[in-house]
């Protein structure tokens, strides 16, 4: 449910939610909460993010009757979470600290010489298929570990864009970042994942 949901399936789910069907709620909670949590973690610490997600689901019970389907259910839910988080930050007068400094990850930057050519070029070609890579359990665990170590802002941008397949415009709205800052967040996160996979392929270590 994190990626594209067939409109008919989503339509029936929305209808069931409007009827107050508790089984439909259980299904929706399991399908949509990971993304909602990723949005909340962009703005808040872990326990506040979990609280906001719980509160949002309670809000949804009434708000779903006003859902007009102008966006998909996922985008609508993510916006509710983002707005709640922004209100919470406003009331506590806090701001999200985000590093939008441009350029390359230091570990990658030092692999180029003064003329801008590769000094230490990528040696191995990764497997073409992501499925083949993912079949490697140790790599999957390593990816989990590195994803958890990413700064929240980079991780949320990566999650919403890659794993939840939001359009850039939606990610910018939900996370309240400019298009150029989103590009910076994505590129930095991807470089880290690239470096991690490369080390893993070369050494077998995480």
């Amino acid at each position: 449910m994190d990626t594209a949901v067939h409109p008919d399936i989503e339509g029936s789910l929305i209808e069931a939610l409007k009827q107050g069907d508790s089984t439909a709620y259980k299904k929706a909670v399991r399908g949509y909460s990971p993304g909602m949590l990723a949005v909340a973690r962009f703005y808040l610490d872990h326990s506040s993010a979990e609280e906001i997600v719980q509160d949002c689901w309670v809000t949804v019970i009434d708000a779903i009757h006003k859902f007009e389907g102008r966006s998909g259910l996922k985008t609508w839910l993510h916006r509710i979470v983002a707005n709640r988080c922004k209100n919470k930050l406003r009331s506590s007068k806090r701001e999200v600290a985000t590093d939008f400094s441009e350029g390359l990850e230091p570990e990658l930057a030092e692999r180029f010489n003064a003329t801008g050519r590769w000094d230490v070029p990528p040696k191995l070609k990764f497997h073409e298929s992501a499925d083949t890579l993912m079949e490697n359990g140790a790599l999957s665990d390593c990816l989990d570990k590195h994803l958890s170590a990413l700064p929240e802002t980079q991780r949320s941008a990566l999650m919403l864009y890659e794993a939840h397949q939001h359009k850039s415009e939606d990610v910018c709205n939900i996370l309240d970042v400019s298009a150029s800052n989103l590009r910076v967040l994505l590129h930095r996160a991807r470089q880290k994942i690239f470096l991690m996979v490369e080390t893993f392929q070369e050494t077998g270590e995480c």
Partner: peptide
């Protein structure tokens, strides 16, 4: 070409990876 291919593979890997489990 290798770098772009590998960055692309990392991106696909992210797409295939679970999006977090509450």
């Amino acid at each position: 070409r290798t770098f772009i291919g590998n960055l692309r593979a990392s991106t696909r890997l992210m797409q295939a990876h679970s999006s977090g489990h509450p």
